[in-house]
Simulated scan of single mutants.
Amino acid sequence: MAGFAHEQVCRVRELVGEPAALGGAVTVALCGHWEHDGDCRWPHHTAVTVEGVDHVVTVGFDAPDADVDEVRRQVRQRLSTGRLRGPDGTVSTWVLHG
């Protein structure tokens, strides 16, 4: 992803709900909530594309080298929960693949 030093790519299946929930889940992982005060600790951008039955979640992020593994771990861990309640109360679900 252009403009970011690092990238994490995950695939999810069986998405029920909004693809934007995947980006929201990443922001919750890295910032605590999608609505947060101040700058992100690790600036990031999430893009979601469809490839066959998968939704491909690509997270571009900036982090010091010492934090890169931690950011990747947090993104995967949050996406592995497979669930996010959006601001309107709608619950989106998915299954992390691989």
Rank of each mutant, 00 (worst) to 15 (best):
H6S: 09
V53W: 06
L84W: 08
G3F: 09
A47I: 00
R73A: 11
D37C: 00
G38M: 05
S92V: 03
L22G: 11
V57A: 05
P64C: 03
P19L: 12
R85W: 02
A29W: 12
G38L: 02
A21V: 05
H36C: 02
H6P: 05
T58G: 03
L22Y: 12
P64Y: 00
T58P: 01
E14Q: 05
E51T: 06
D88C: 00
V26P: 12
W94E: 06
T81P: 00
G89R: 11
H97F: 05
E7L: 14
G60I: 03
E14C: 00
G24Q: 10
V71R: 15
R83L: 12
A47Q: 14
A20V: 14
V53Q: 06
G98K: 05
A29M: 09
A2C: 06
D39Y: 02
R41D: 11
D65V: 00
R72P: 07
F4D: 02
F4M: 03
W42V: 03
V71T: 15
A5M: 07
H33M: 01
P19K: 15
V59K: 13
G38S: 07
L84R: 11
L96K: 02
R72H: 10
D88E: 13
G17L: 03
G23P: 10
E35F: 02
R78K: 14
L96F: 08
D39M: 09
P43D: 01
V71S: 15
T27I: 06
E70V: 10
T58S: 09
V26H: 13
E14G: 06
F61M: 06
E7F: 02
G82R: 08
G38I: 01
C31Q: 14
R72Q: 14
H97T: 03
L30I: 04
P43L: 00
R78P: 00
R85A: 09
C40Y: 14
D69Y: 00
A20T: 15
W42K: 01
D39L: 10
G82N: 07
E7T: 14
A29E: 12
W94M: 02
E18K: 11
R41S: 01
G60A: 03
V95N: 08
R13T: 05
E51C: 04
S92G: 10
A20F: 08
F4Y: 08
G32K: 05
C40E: 15
E18G: 08
Q74S: 11
L30R: 03
A25F: 09
R41K: 07
E51A: 03
P43V: 05
C10Y: 06
R13N: 04
V59R: 14
V95Y: 03
V56D: 01
G98Y: 02
R41N: 01
T46P: 04
A2K: 13
R85M: 09
F4C: 04
T58A: 04
W94L: 00
R41H: 08
R72L: 02
D39H: 10
R73H: 13
V75P: 12
R83F: 08
G98M: 05
P87F: 07
G89C: 07
V95C: 07
G86R: 15
T27Y: 11
P64I: 00
V53M: 02
Q74M: 12
L30M: 08
P43W: 04
L15D: 01
R76C: 01
D62V: 06
H44G: 05
C31F: 06
T58E: 08
R76V: 00
V9A: 13
G38N: 06
V75F: 11
T93N: 12
V59P: 11
A47N: 12
L22T: 12
V68F: 12
H45K: 14
T27A: 12
V28F: 10
V95T: 09
